[in-house]
Amino acid sequence: MLERQSNLKAWFYLAPAMALLSVFTFYPLFNAFFLAFLEDFEFLLGTASGFTILGNFQKVITSPNFAIAMKNTSVITFISVPISVVVALLISVALNSIKKFQSIFQTVFFLPYVTNAIAIGMAFAFIFHTDFGLLNTALGWIGINPVNWIGLGASWNTAMFALLVYTIWGGLAFKIMVFLSGLQSIDKQYYDAARVDAAPRRRVFTKITVPLLSPMIAYITITSFIGAFKAYRTIIGMFGTSLRPPGTLSKDSLITIVGLVYDALYHADATGKISEAAAASIILFSITLTFTLIQMQINKRRVHF
């Protein structure tokens, strides 16, 4: 280790953050956990009839949309995260390597951040429109017939595809900003040395950039997975509160676990609903935590700290 243990000093540095987190993060979190084990909790009155260990979890798992929500959450997470991380990494490295127009490109890739959510929704509706959408127009050039992506009665498959494109788009700006700032912290000496050795670009990328950027890659991957497990707003943005392509039944719904949480929270005035929201959150938490621990285990071997 770097130094002998310095507990007191460490807590001095941690104190401001920990004090705030205790009040506004840990306390509400424990509160939420606690609610999941109350039976027939009346949120508006603050009364419950007793404790239950599994009752609220059982309610969540047997609720009609649980299986669909699990499926959607997994698909969104395991497809969108790897693609968006790789694409963002490539864009950042490309952006970092150019000299001309660098500032313009950097601004362009930042703009999604300041784009109004309604405009984003409208633009994607246009991209995926069956009759005159950009995507179907482009497909037409290569002789593919128009696809009903998100229109009336669209299938789960095409709607999910559109949602994934939207999700990946939505995550790019943040990831690029993080990678760019991470790339700045890499010592230029490494690249100078590589240039002297006339190392090919791909080698520079895999042997210098990726390893030295690995803390940022680890950060982005872990937080992106956590974020994707919590996907919900993107679905509202694309499909509205019905969470599905118009004119379809709930088997084609794109609801996620957080969708279930929202749904239960919305009914917080009903008996026990807030406990169901808490239980659904704990289920999500357990899945995410397990997955994150596995990732950290893998990272421990790969990440060049």
Binding site: L21, F26, P28, K230, Y232, Y262, F285, T292
Partner: peptide, 14 residues
């Protein structure tokens, strides 16, 4: 890190 795994809306009311 694990506090990020709970949907933010669970914190709001408390």
């Amino acid at each position: 890190i694990s506090t990020m795994m709970i949907p933010g809306e669970m914190f709001v009311i408390t």
